[in-house]
Design a protein around this nucleic acid. Structure first.
Lengths: 144, 144
DNA sequence: GTAGGACTTCGAGTGCACTCGAAGTCAAGA
DNA sequence: TCTTGACTTCGAGTGCACTCGAAGTCCTAC
């Protein structure tokens, strides 16, 4: 899973490893770093990125934030809060609580959409069954 | 709610009515029509759009498709199927069933995201409680 | 008759989140 | 030595779904 080991217990991930591990593309990983969502990642002697376990964990957290619907712009602000120290924890809670609400609202909306979709499906399936029962012409012949 | 009535039981909606009724912007309503998602809407003598009840219903259905995650491109194909006649109903069912699955998958993912988010919130709230319990310096003074 | 306001068309612009490509560097293998 | 291939940076390009703005028309009220 990890590409190389640099000393006992000091595992690190190449960008390929990190991409495979997180499901982000390599492009996206560099993009996140460029945008400051991820602190500059350690580099090997040849200049290649070496992601730590913690880096991978942070990437996964970023993915969670995205998945809750948080835009990149606000993720930057959130990351800034985490860098600013423990006195920003209340602020962070406020932000996460906000996205928790938004997520709950989306989930409720999705449930309704699912219902409406299934209703439509039922309607179509009913039409399909009716078409099956009654031949499409009046000759009484079954279809080819 | 409706702007005008043109004969008994023949209600119609101005674009403003339709926008208010569906939550789409007027821009979006014209855009959908331009893209062929909506058949050309009737026009009053002055060239202004007059949406029928059916039009509004179709718009709501389009919104449902969008909400299930269907891109505009595929919505066009779906609309084309509905215009092609009843023999496309099986195809339409296949499409809707596909988006039903996708929606279910998203809902499951969202449930997991919600859990992870709440876990993080719990963590932060714990840190907050701990910080409240222990003064931020070692003088033993309570904070201002 | 003319000013205001809401509509029309149409093409262009926006915001978002990637996604890509060119040009360069570096290390390993034939 | 030379090719291969994976990485690097950086700016530019993409795709999506709107969203806007300019220019024109038409009706109403003053």
């Amino acid at each position: 899973m990890h590409s190389k080991s640099y000393g006992v217990g000091m595992e690190s991930f190449t960008i390929d490893d990190a991409a495979r591990e997180t499901g982000c593309s390599k492009h996206t990983l560099r993009y996140y770093e460029r945008e400051g969502l991820l602190a500059p990642v350690a580099k090997a002697a040849n200049g290649h990125r070496r992601y730590s376990e913690d880096d991978v964990g942070r990437i996964r957290f970023l993915q969670l934030l995205r998945a809750t619907g948080m835009p990149i712009r606000e993720m930057k602000e959130f990351v800034a809060l985490t860098h600013a120290g423990d006195h920003t924890i209340a602020d962070r809670v406020a932000v996460l609580a906000h996205y928790r609400e938004a997520l709950l609202a989306r989930m409720a909306a999705d449930r309704e959409h699912l219902q409406r979709l299934e209703h439509k499906l039922d309607y179509y399936r009913g039409a399909l069954a009716a078409a099956d029962a009654v031949p499409e012409d009046i000759t009484g012949n079954v279809r080819a």
